[in-house]
Design a binder for these strands. Sequence first.
DNA 1: TTCGTTAATCGTATATTTGCGATATAAGAT
DNA 2: ATCTTATATCGCAAATATACGATTAACGAA
Lengths: 111, 111
Amino acid sequence: MAFHKKEEFNSKEQSLAAFAKAISHPARIAILNVLAKKNECICGDIVEVLPLAQSTVSQHLKELKIAGLIDGTIDGPRSCYCINWKAFEKFNAEFTSLFTNLKIKNEKACC
Amino acid sequence: MAFHKKEEFNSKEQSLAAFAKAISHPARIAILNVLAKKNECICGDIVEVLPLAQSTVSQHLKELKIAGLIDGTIDGPRSCYCINWKAFEKFNAEFTSLFTNLKIKNEKACC
DNA sequence: TTCGTTAATCGTATATTTGCGATATAAGAT
DNA sequence: ATCTTATATCGCAAATATACGATTAACGAA
């Protein structure tokens, strides 16, 4: 029975998979781009740019926050989001290390 | 109404999201590692190593193949899979270019 | 031909994701 | 205190993803 067997894989695999999942939707990539383009960590502006309802955008922001890719602070009646570069660096390293490890082990294609 | 609004985002966002989705499950990352470790493009061996049923592994392989990350050829009664390095390079470039673009635009955190 | 091996696919159950409108919350403005 | 604005959260519906067992297909060997 036992569904979602994700726990049975090692932590490195899980960590990278979780990160990939966070950016596995175009809306979330678009959000990251918006956050970076505007030098101020706006938030409601994202809703205007994306073809999604406010509640949906809020949900995507939450997922990015849970994944640690962005930080969010409450600023009066509005929220301020920005990219967490440290987390990005970490995951970027994990990601490229995957490729590197693979490439070292297997240089030539066999099929 | 209109669900899955993914089409409304630009192709770059969609392409990167699709790649991220392909590696957004630890089983698929594990498969990539197995494919690389063994210098031969085994296939049934993956089933032995992973804590998943044969049909499930086959499904994950299919997804990786659809995403273009691996190639598969039929070799007698068995299938031979291997990593598509070209696709990997392409997506690796897309991925790092995302970070680079973001970093150029926004050097300092604001919250 | 029949049997065994290997892997893909089908059917199905369950879980998760995506999306929206409605509602709640929180703070500044009037 | 009330109104407005901004955002989070709730509740729900639909779509996808994950997993498995059973079946099918394709081939080599007996």
